[in-house]
Design a binder for these strands. Structure first.
Lengths: 136, 136
DNA sequence: CTATTTGATAGAAATAATTACTAATTACAT
DNA sequence: ATGTAATTAGTAATTATTTCTATCAAATAG
């Protein structure tokens, strides 16, 4: 019943972690797969999924659920929020630190035991802003 | 090419809307399907999906994306946040109105054009709190 | 009132994203 | 170096959702 947590640092796991930390985007599992197979052509999509899952479970990376059909991943585990472009799905970072304790505020309103919050924004990325302008 | 917006109030659509407004939970499409087929045994899962989509697109209900694998729906379209139980997935309402303009704050930090925000909490629902207590 | 067109339905099939299975391989402690 | 449990590639299966198709019913035209 104990969590053994024997994490082996395989080549695949290492490359996945390195690559995710390198990019400033927030790739989906498939994005990662496409990126990775350039360096490691025989890597399998299942391996990418499994490792992203394992790495996020052990808190080494972050799994994002910012809307849209696919999960995304972030190598930056510091506290920050995200914006998602409603047109193209691109996800960017935003550093907004709420000026008061949202969890405490929320705790007053519910019988759930509150652990943490997630603040996310929706908007238009620079590229899609330009496209909109061109169309009008 | 114009948005005609001809919404026919069919029996199925009506029952879906009524049922969603009646419950205080935040059912998935399949939850709805299971609930609805008790009243309307021949209703199709596709119809449930399509109508929840149509109703949320026209702003009559809300489509939620609070994590987990399935989308959820909310008949309450007033501004409010949600908590999701990390154990069972149950979703509850929380009325926290941030005391300052989060969008404006975020806009300073990004070149995305910010439209709106979404604030969500994670925690343990009352039922799972009890289960945890019993186990310890 | 009857015909037409338009939107909606049930049921099945298709697609997309993710997870599970299996035999072969590999990292790592001894 | 060797044993063994973890991990892999490749494939199959599953899950959630969307699309397709033939049919049906309401609304509108004549």
């Amino acid at each position: 019943m104990e969590a053994k947590n024997k994490l082996r640092m395989t080549k695949q796991r290492q490359v996945i972690l390195e690559e995710l930390r390198k990019v400033k985007t927030h790739p989906t599992a498939d994005d990662m797969y496409q990126m990775l197979r350039k360096k490691m052509p025989k890597i399998s999509l299942g391996t990418v999924y499994r490792n992203l899952e394992i790495l996020s479970e052990s808190g080494i990376i972050q799994k994002l659920d910012v809307g849209g059909t696919q999960k995304r991943f972030d190598g930056d585990i510091t506290i920050h929020s995200h914006v998602r472009c409603i047109d193209c799905g691109r996800v960017g970072d935003i550093d907004v630190t709420p000026k008061y304790n949202l969890e405490a505020e929320a705790q007053k309103m519910t019988d759930f035991m509150i652990f943490r919050h997630r603040l996310e924004f929706t908007g238009l990325c620079p590229i899609c802003q330009h496209k909109k302008k061109a169309t009008s």
